[in-house]
C-alpha cells in the first residue's frame, strides 16, 4: 500500500511538473483516482486579462492600468530590478524578439514589464534600468501593489515567491497579448528561440 501510494505521488508530481502546459482540472484527493491531470478545456479567444483591475506605476511615475497598451500586441513579462541574471535575460530575450520584427509590426508592438518588488522598484530604479538597457519608448517598466502582483502572476501563469533575503524566486515567461488583451502565445523558457513570438506578433499586427 505504501509503495503504491509513493509511486502514485511520484507520477503525479512528475506529470504536473514536466508537462505543465497540458495539466487539467481533474485532480482528486484519493489514490484510486490519483491526482493526474486531464486535458483542460480548449483556449477561448475572449479571455482578456484586462479585466484585472491594477494600478501600475511606471518608470516616469505615471499611474496607468494593466490595459495601458490595449489595442496593441504586447509582450508582457514579470521581473524585479535587483535580480542578478534571470531578469536581465528576460529583457535581452524580448529585445531579441523585437529586433526580428518587420518595421510595421515593430511600430505596433509594446512591452510591459511588471516588477515583483514594489518596495525597491521605484520609478527611479525602473528609469535606471531603462537607461542602462537602452530601452526605447515602446517599453514600460512598472511596479504594482503586492496583492495585484499576485493576481497578475496568477493570470500569466508565473510562479514566484519572496525569499527571506528579499530576492524573488520566479519563473521567467514572456507572454504575447493580442489587441484585446488575451494571451496569444507564451515563451516559458527565455533560453528558447523567440520565433513563435515574432511570428505571432506579426500575425496580430496585420489583423485589426
Amino acid at each position: 500500500m505504501r509503495r503504491i501510494a509513493l509511486v502514485s505521488i511520484l507520477v503525479a508530481a512528475g506529470v504536473v511538473g514536466c508537462r505543465e502546459r497540458t495539466v487539467g482540472t481533474s485532480a482528486a484527493p484519493s489514490l484510486d483516482s490519483a491526482p493526474l491531470p486531464a486535458p483542460s478545456t480548449p483556449p477561448r479567444s475572449d479571455l482578456s486579462i484586462y479585466v484585472l483591475s491594477m494600478t501600475l506605476t511606471d518608470q516616469n511615475g505615471e499611474k496607468v492600468g494593466l490595459d495601458v497598451f490595449r489595442g496593441k500586441p504586447v509582450f508582457v513579462g514579470m521581473f524585479y530590478g535587483t535580480c542578478p541574471s534571470a531578469c536581465p535575460m528576460l529583457i535581452s530575450t524580448i529585445k531579441q524578439a523585437m529586433s526580428k520584427l518587420d518595421a510595421a509590426t515593430a511600430a505596433e508592438v509594446r512591452v510591459l514589464l511588471v516588477s515583483f518588488d514594489p518596495v525597491r522598484d521605484t520609478p527611479e530604479a525602473l528609469r535606471a534600468i531603462v537607461t542602462r538597457r537602452e530601452l526605447d519608448p515602446r517599453w514600460k517598466l512598472a511596479s504594482a501593489p503586492e496583492d495585484q502582483v499576485r493576481d497578475l502572476a496568477a493570470l500569466l501563469g508565473v510562479q514566484y515567491r519572496r525569499l527571506p533575503d528579499g530576492n524573488f524566486s520566479h519563473t521567467s515567461s514572456i507572454v504575447l497579448l493580442n489587441r484585446a488583451g488575451a494571451i496569444d502565445t507564451r515563451l516559458d523558457d527565455t533560453a528558447q528561440p523567440v520565433n513563435s513570438l515574432v511570428v505571432r506578433a506579426r500575425a496580430i499586427s496585420v489583423t485589426n
Binding site: 535580480c83 510562479q159 514566484y160 524566486s169 519563473t171 523558457d189 533560453a191
Partner: peptide, 16 residues
C-alpha cells in the same frame, strides 16, 4: 503558485 520553486530562474534551460 509558489509551490516547488526550489531553484532560481537564473538557471534557465535546466530549471524545469
Amino acid at each position: 503558485n509558489s509551490a516547488m520553486l526550489s531553484t532560481d530562474a537564473r538557471r534557465s534551460g535546466d530549471k524545469e
